[in-house]
Design a binder for these strands. Structure first.
Lengths: 147, 147
DNA sequence: TGACAAACGATAATAATTATCGTTCAATAG
DNA sequence: CTATTGAACGATAATTATTATCGTTTGTCA
């Protein structure tokens, strides 16, 4: 009896000002059951088992909606295209989650990280990268046209 | 007299087993002069000022070559497409720079980070994300077919 | 210098994502 | 409970970013 789940999703939507549609409900439930870092296409394949007629566009639109309203998070909140790192000094990144602008900050201004080169599981460490996620000054002002 | 620069680029190529072409030389020099995190298209626009006949494909091919050989680094060495974070527990990521696979690791197994919410410059911190970049066990074995 | 593989330029192809638009549905006022 | 209405849906075209193809040109090395 998924009455509880339905109720909580309804509440979640209310909190974020979203209409409760059948597609969104199923989409959300299915995603909750997918561990890891699914892509929109993987989600699409799963949701189709319960709603065969759903459109890929609907999956994309609602994932974006969930991300924008803070219900879900993105694995890499960077700009989605290739960028080359031209700063030769050790540094980390301030990433604005709204306008995607990335600013460098000096490594020392954050924290020192362990220098272990081999982790449990056999992973061979090359380097550490810290993203400080948040809002830049411009986006805090909430001007709709982000730079 | 750019003889020195040419010499050092020639040496760099030799170290990495790359042929020294005019396009590569100019591409490298131009990128060195671009601070921040340029995109292939931005690089293309700049390089065209010196080699108007250069192809965008050449820019892409050589940027990838530089990245693959370790001459340059990528800002976000993640898979290039949208992924949704489904792990509700505080955690960070092991990112394999070869196969792009992302594995979660518990927050406590890395380091504690400061909890400052406002940084100099006015940046409003939402959360910290650490990427441990390196090679997963499978890719250390150097099997050409990555999963 | 000449041979040959590698790189180049032009452009077609692919992948990922977003926009458009006519139809259907959820919210809510009566 | 039903009618209204704007939002959401599905189908698909369009866009963007990137990679593949292929005939021509160029760098490397004997």
């Amino acid at each position: 009896m998924p009455t509880e789940r339905q109720a909580s999703f309804r509440q979640l939507c209310e909190e974020h000002g979203l209409a409760v549609t059948h597609q969104r409900q199923v989409l959300y439930e299915v995603m909750q059951q997918m561990p890891g870092h699914p892509s929109p296409d993987e989600v699409y394949l799963r949701v189709r088992k319960r709603i065969p007629s759903i459109s890929l566009a609907t999956v994309y639109k609602n994932i974006r909606l969930f991300l924008d309203s803070g219900i879900l998070q993105e694995v890499s909140p960077h700009h989605g295209s290739l960028r080359v790192e031209m700063n030769r000094h050790p540094h980390h990144h301030l990433v604005c989650t709204r306008c995607k602008r990335i600013t460098d900050i000096d490594e020392s201004s954050i924290a020192e990280l362990p220098r272990r080169k081999k982790l449990a599981g056999g992973f061979l460490v090359q380097r550490y990268a810290i993203d400080v996620l948040g809002l830049c000054v411009e986006c805090q002002a909430d001007n709709p046209s982000a730079t």
